[in-house]
Amino acid sequence: MNEKKQCPVMCSCLYFTSNKLNRILNKMAEEEFIKTGLSPSHALTLMNINRHPGFSQKELSEIMNIKPSTTTRFIDKLEGRGMVERKIEGKLSYLYPTSKGAELQSEIDKCLKNLNKRYSEILGCEESVELTEAIDKAATKLEKNI
């Protein structure tokens, strides 16, 4: 499809432009994180567990801004691969990395750094930081009003 025909409506709509950006960044992230054997979402879930051992699933959902059911699916996969273990106390489930999960952290850090470097080289470092901050600020404002 010709971009010029699409642009007047599509380029002026935050919904469509943010989805376009998300698809592009997701493709880049998948290419970088393939080295871990995990999807970007699973790798970032493991990263958070590695950095915050003992987090409850509820806390993990909150910091990742995802639904509890999504968190459960991510944890199930990581647990099945021997990277995370759950410890149940009452009604709460606490998450801990296994040695296998902890060992993968340096590779996750490299992938995240490479992803950041990749889009920063295209956008420019300053624009990359400004865009990230603007998107986070907009998301926070919009989230408070839905």
Rank of each mutant, 00 (worst) to 15 (best):
E3M: 05
K5F: 02
Q6A: 15
Q6E: 08
Q6T: 14
M10E: 13
C11Q: 12
C11T: 08
S18I: 09
S18K: 09
K20M: 13
N22M: 11
N22T: 09
R23E: 12
R23Y: 08
I24Q: 10
I24G: 05
M28V: 07
A29M: 09
E30I: 14
E30A: 12
E32P: 00
F33Q: 09
I34N: 08
K35C: 05
T36P: 02
L38N: 11
L38D: 02
S41C: 07
S41N: 15
H42Y: 09
L44A: 00
T45I: 06
M47H: 04
M47P: 01
N48I: 00
R51Q: 11
R51S: 10
R51T: 12
P53E: 04
G54L: 04
F55H: 03
S56M: 04
S56Q: 02
S56R: 01
E62T: 07
M64H: 05
I66W: 08
S69E: 15
T70K: 12
T70E: 13
T70Y: 11
T71D: 01
T72P: 02
R73I: 00
F74A: 09
K77M: 12
K77Q: 11
L78Q: 14
R81V: 10
G82W: 09
V84R: 08
R86H: 03
K87C: 04
K87V: 11
I88D: 06
I88V: 15
G90H: 01
G90A: 01
K91A: 07
K91S: 07
L92T: 13
S93C: 03
S93Q: 07
S99V: 08
K100M: 04
Q105M: 13
I108C: 04
C111S: 02
L112D: 01
K113V: 06
N114R: 14
N116I: 08
R118W: 05
Y119E: 04
Y119A: 01
C125S: 10
S128C: 14
S128A: 15
V129E: 15
L131K: 09
A134D: 11
A134H: 09
A134S: 11
A134I: 07
D136M: 15
D136R: 08
K137D: 13
A138Q: 08
A139I: 13
T140A: 15
T140D: 06
T140V: 10
K141L: 12
K141V: 06
E143Y: 13
E143M: 12
N145Y: 10
